[in-house]
Each structure stands twice: as structure tokens, then as C-alpha cells.
Design a protein around this nucleic acid. Sequence first.
DNA 1: GCCAACGTTGGC
DNA 2: GCCAACGTTGGC
Length: 149
Amino acid sequence: MAHWLIKSEPSDFSYDDLVAATREGWDGVRNYQARIFLRRMEVGDQAIFYHSMAKPPGAAGVCEIVKGAEPDPTQFDPSAKYYDPTSDPDDPRWVWVTVAPVRALRFVPLAELRSMPELAECRLLAKGNRLSVLPLTDAEFDAIVERGL
DNA sequence: GCCAACGTTGGC
DNA sequence: GCCAACGTTGGC
């Protein structure tokens, strides 16, 4: 089972919103590197739900992939924020996965994540990192979850 | 609001 | 294919 970290702006969609929704399509990813990771996700994989652009940013919960990659319908919706008129319906460019909540964490702020030696190599903390979907090693994932118990 | 870093676009 | 310009991300 692989592990991941996915970012969301809580003002747009928070971990609590996911709990309320029960499950949700992870829409709006419009980055080729992130797309690679979405396609690799398998049912049963777990991910840290990270709040970006928040005060403070940090890890909010654990979620699980309950459905693998399939075309993200919002790319074809002109009223959607992430509408992509250049995506061909016969060959959709962007995918989403469906996630469900597993458990909330005691919120682990970014400053605390930075202090954890287990995360020294984590891409999340690399300078200039902007990826909204990224893989975690099992050790990195476990360390974040333990921090938030 | 600012700025650094990165990705994308488009002229050549 | 190069690279400058521009847009976006995301922390502070």
C-alpha cells in the first residue's frame, strides 16, 4: 500500500468538509507531475490531507483512496474553476481520484513538520515545492500520523 | 501584500 | 530548441 500527501486550501475544501461529504472526487489537479501520482494511486492507499494557504498550513487528517483515477469531470464544465477548454472529451487530459476520510489528526502545523527529522527528505518541505499531490515513504507517513494522534 | 520558485506559453 | 515573459503556488 502506497502513501501520499494531498493539499487542499481549507477555505475551499477542508478535512472537515471531507468528513461531512463522506467521500469526494479530488478535482482540480492541473499539473502533469501531480497527474502521474494520481494515476499511480490505488484503492486502499492512504494519504495525509494537508491544508495549504491556511493560517497556519499543516496536516489535518488521514484519508483513503476509495476509487482510482478516472477523468475529472470539472475539466469539461465551463462554469468550473478549473475548466480546461483544450481538453478533448475523447481523450481527457486530467484525472481525479475519489477519497474518503479515515481519521482526523491533531492539527500538525508546517513549523512542526519541519522540526521532524523523519521528514528531512520529504518533498513537501523542499524549498520551492509546489506540488499539490506527492508521494510519502511509509516512514514519513507513519511519522506524521503518530505526531497527530 | 510581498517574494521566491516553478510551470507554461509563445516568439524566434 | 531556446529563453524571456507571464501566471500560479504557497509561505510569510
